[in-house]
């Protein structure tokens, strides 16, 4: 037999219109996609390689890696990277550990479980910049509720937002509070996918609940935990809106808390150097890309 292309007696589609019908359905979607996603992706890559790019004239002097060299040599970008990584390394593990515990407790048969869920999930839906203002008030050194509560444990007043040292913990605590609901929800749905028979079997064997937690729950939940870590790492890499309300729109009390996204904004809006901003955005994407690939790789492996 020759190549397996089958000549069919096609069902007649009388009109031209019905032939292009699928594309008419796609058209509204594709217009938005091409103009505001596809073209920008290509364009940002191009801009990042244009040296001396001017956003007004759209002229540039030559193609090259100049923007990347400038970005990587900029101490402010180095600071942004190191702050971002610090933030990721603090927020992701702590929020994951907390969420594992909370999700396990919420997964039991509880009274008022709707009430608990509302309490633990609420930060997910509210405006982070608006709630950030409340946090700013709570962090206030002299009148803040946080320092007041800590005073019961004999802690002196902490200058959360006024001091470079303390600004990172302040941001991290707010960040954890903010990311916790999402993490709990994903872990909770992971827990609900575990076959209850495993638990019944373990209980029949007389295992203690702690043993069940570490020998059954954690291993079976591992893929979800991993997934959550990756997603949270990616979203923490983009930290910006958490920072904005705490320090009146500045990155930290002494501009000491630059993050990658803050750096992009700075390069773009204050310096008007789009090439620099584009190069920084590409570097941000590289980080995200690597983590996404790791996620796909692991997911494919565990699925087999």
């Amino acid at each position: 037999m020759k190549k397996n292309t089958v000549q069919e007696r096609k069902i007649e589609n009388k009109s031209f219109l019905s032939k292009i019908e699928p594309f008419l359905y796609l058209l509204p979607f594709l217009i938005g996609l091409v103009v505001f996603t596809l073209y920008p992706v290509i364009n940002v890559v191009l801009i990042s390689f244009k040296e001396g790019y001017s956003h007004l004239s759209r002229n540039f002097t030559e193609w090259g890696l100049g923007n990347y060299e400038t970005v990587l040599a900029d101490p402010r970008f180095g600071q942004a990277i190191s702050n971002t990584i610090k933030y990721v390394l603090l927020v992701v593990p702590i929020s994951t550990c907390l969420s594992i515990v909370i999700a396990n407790l919420l997964n039991q048969k509880l009274r008022f479980s709707a009430l608990f869920q509302t309490a633990y999930f609420l930060p997910m839906v509210t405006s982070i910049t608006a709630v950030g203002l409340a946090w700013k008030l709570m962090y206030n050194k002299n009148f803040g509720i946080i320092n007041y509560l800590l005073s019961f444990f004999g802690v002196d007043k902490i200058p959360w937002l006024e001091n470079a040292q303390w600004s990172i913990p302040a941001l991290v605590i707010f960040g954890i509070w903010n990311i916790l609901p999402f993490t709990i929800i994903l872990l909770l749905s992971g827990l609900q996918n575990i076959d209850p028979l495993y638990y019944t079997a373990a209980k029949v064997d007389g295992s203690s609940s702690l043993r069940i937690f570490f020998r059954i729950t954690i291993p079976l939940l591992a893929p979800t935990i991993f997934l959550v870590c990756i997603i949270n790492t990616i979203s923490c890499f983009k930290v910006f809106s958490e920072l904005y309300p705490l320090f009146n729109g500045k990155p930290g009390p002494f501009n000491n808390l630059y993050t990658v996204v803050y750096y992009i904004r700075y390069a773009m809006m204050e310096n008007r150097k789009y090439g620099i901003a584009a190069a920084a955005a590409i570097i941000l994407f590289m980080f995200i890309f690597v983590f996404t690939m790791v996620q796909h790789f692991i997911q494919n492996r565990t699925r087999r």
Binding site: F36, V41, M268, F285
Partner: peptide
Amino acid sequence: MLLALMMIPFEMLIITNYST
């Protein structure tokens, strides 16, 4: 291809979308 585009962060698109 769309699924691959899904991992592009919006932060990366701002520069061009702003100009657009």
